[in-house]
Computed example of a mutant assay.
Amino acid sequence: MLQNLLQHKNLILASQSPRRQELLKALEVDFEVRLKPIDESYPAGMQPAEIAKYIAKKKAAAFLNELTDDTILITGDTLVFKDEQALGKPKDAEEATRMLQSLSGTSHEVISSVCVTTSKLQWVTHDSATVHFRVFSEAEIQHYINTYKPFDKAGAYGIQEWIGHIALLKLEGSYNTVMGLPTQKLYSLLEIAATA
């Protein structure tokens, strides 16, 4: 059991996302949250999965000099891709509206990476899912943005919020991956890291 393997480990989640914190809690492990500001830019020409992994590793790099032998650090990144274009976090309501309009009535890809780092080793992987939305009305888009203010979410939406409940037609892949943390892959990486 993972809980036993992690008994003498200090698990750190470097994410302010309440969704990631909730999902990690669901794995029944003890952890603390530590945050550092990170520049999430990436080199041009990278493939979608590479971008997500690159940013997760960049987030881990900020903590490297403070990791002790008993520490395991978890970082991650989630990106929404529509027609090969990355949709990041919208900077305002206007941009959020444009993003949701582009996702309305179509499918898009969500890629979530997870990076597990110790003082000696690092493992990084990703998972992807395809989300199919029905058409949103303008009133629905405005209600969602005004009520839920999805400015901290890639693609301007959270699948677990109202918009997901009313508009998700089909999901190919893991729901947790769309929420921001591929828990099944993380669980395996933590088992490896705890015994490495």
Rank of each mutant, 00 (worst) to 15 (best):
Thr195Val: 08
Gln3Tyr: 14
Asp152Met: 10
Leu189Lys: 06
Leu121Asn: 07
Gln7His: 13
Thr177Tyr: 05
Pro18Val: 15
Glu84Pro: 01
Lys25Ser: 13
Gly45Phe: 01
Leu5Ile: 02
Lys91Val: 14
Thr106Tyr: 03
Ala129Tyr: 08
His126Met: 14
Ala156Val: 14
Val135Tyr: 13
Gln101Tyr: 11
Glu94Ser: 12
Lys58Met: 03
Leu67Gly: 07
Leu35Arg: 15
Glu28Val: 06
Ala49Leu: 03
Ser174Trp: 02
Thr97Lys: 13
Gln16Gly: 12
Ala44Cys: 07
Ala86Asn: 08
Ile141Glu: 08
Leu23Phe: 04
Ile74Asp: 00
Lys91Arg: 06
Val29Lys: 06
Ser119Asn: 09
Gly164His: 10
Ile72Asn: 08
Phe63Pro: 01
Ala167Arg: 00
Ser102Gln: 10
Leu67Trp: 04
Lys59Cys: 01
Ser128Pro: 02
Leu87Phe: 14
Arg98Pro: 12
Lys36Cys: 13
Val29Asp: 04
Gly105Arg: 14
Thr75Ile: 03
Glu109Phe: 07
Gln101Ser: 11
Ala156Gln: 13
Phe31Thr: 10
Gln16Tyr: 02
Lys82Phe: 13
Val116Ser: 05
Asp70Leu: 04
Phe63Tyr: 07
Ile163Trp: 02
Arg134Met: 07
Ala60Phe: 11
Ile163Pro: 12
Ala196Gln: 05
Ile145Pro: 00
Lys120Leu: 12
Gly88Ile: 07
Ile166Trp: 13
Lys120Glu: 13
His143Glu: 05
Leu121Ser: 10
Gln101Ile: 11
Glu22His: 11
Ile141Gln: 06
Ile163Gln: 01
Ser137Gly: 05
Ile72Lys: 04
Leu2Pro: 11
Pro48Ser: 02
Met46Gly: 08
Thr97Tyr: 11
Ser112Phe: 04
Lys91Phe: 12
Asp152Ile: 03
Leu171Gln: 00
Glu66Cys: 11
Ala61Glu: 07
Gly173Gln: 10
Ala139Trp: 03
Asn146Val: 07
Leu87Arg: 11
Val33Gly: 12
Phe81Ile: 02
Ala14Trp: 08
Ile166Gly: 06
Arg19Lys: 09
